[in-house]
Amino acid sequence: MKQKFDIIESTCVPLPLENVDTDQIIPARFLKATTRDEKFFGDNLFRDWRYDKEGNLKPDFVLNNPLYGGEILVAGKNFGSGSSREHAAWAIAGYGFKVVISSFFADIHKNNELNNFVLPVVVSEHFLANLFTSIQANPKMQVRVDVPNQTVTNLSTGESETFEINGYKKYCLMNALDDIDFLLENREKIEAWEKMSR
């Protein structure tokens, strides 16, 4: 969903697993939809970790633990590997996450998050490990993600890092613009390119 990004302060949901692939974020059997119903995808985020075969909540999975909540998902390295399914980003957005923090994201998934106004924030391994420790010590601790200044701060320890985002994408996020808006404005350039290279 298009939304303007500025400063986000929120509690976090910790998922200290590495290599979380998009098949886990949203299993293939939920990819048969023909619309972008974010509620449907959000309801099935991490479906097989969240529910058992009978559809009962698995109490030991973090999304089912009432201690944790918020707009920020914190995950182990190599988050979103595997399939290009954008449904994974729709599920994350649909569940209500605005930011995913990890030390490493898979390329396609990272783009998919950005295209759905979910901000992937890459932090150092050290920052990530400390953040998991902070959340474990106090599930109500908050993180501040400041998009204009490109900083992410663990408000429990005060530890802060800058994160990378290119100027174009930052402008898009802060102004709720997407890439298609941009490309449509550039059709003349595309036609000129076609003429030149054919």
Binding site: E86, N112, D178, L183, N186, I190
Partner: peptide, 21 residues
């Protein structure tokens, strides 16, 4: 491989916005 928003970009403009790997 690309996501669905990017599929839409290509349909709309035959172009995609990508960081050079």
């Amino acid at each position: 491989g690309i996501g669905t928003s990017e599929v839409e970009m290509v349909m709309a403009s035959q172009c995609i916005l990508q960081q050079k790997p």
